[in-house]
Amino acid sequence: MEKDLETKFLSEFEENQNIAHKICRLYTTNKDAHNDLFQEITIQVWKNYPKFRGDSKFSTWMYRVALNTAISLYRKSTRRVKTQDISDFAYKIKATAYDDTEELQLKSLYKAVHQLNDIDKALIFLYLEDKPYKEISETLGISSVNARVKMNRAKEKLKNILNP
């Protein structure tokens, strides 16, 4: 039984690991911090996996656990450097060459999101991932109306950073 659970977890997590990677990119600015957060997310998802009832998709549930891990970790840590390690990050994006303007856009998007607070980061992430408000409110544990209000504020903040 436990063996089955574990195998299932491993394959589902491996398939959906990009969710965790994207969150790590938003919440951290260097490779070490990225891997630390990724590890913490893995631990939390596995720890909570027995509670996952399967009434939603695994990915939906994983968004919730992973984001909450990032938010609580980000809150706890005061020592985490806030300034962006641009060289490290640029390297990461450069790894695959594609449309130049998109590449630049993505870079400035990340740069801008890094300046937001932990909750705004989560909201923007869910917006970028095209999540419906119902899911956003469930993921962050706030009401749908509240999610809408907060989302608009977060988007405004982001726009101001991107286009001052």
């Binding site: 690991q17 917006y127 982001l158």
Partner: peptide, 19 residues
Amino acid sequence: LLDNYKKAWDNQPEEVHKF
């Protein structure tokens, strides 16, 4: 304005170092 960035976000490369 954000819609442009959203496109860039959707097209971003997958993580190079997959576990």
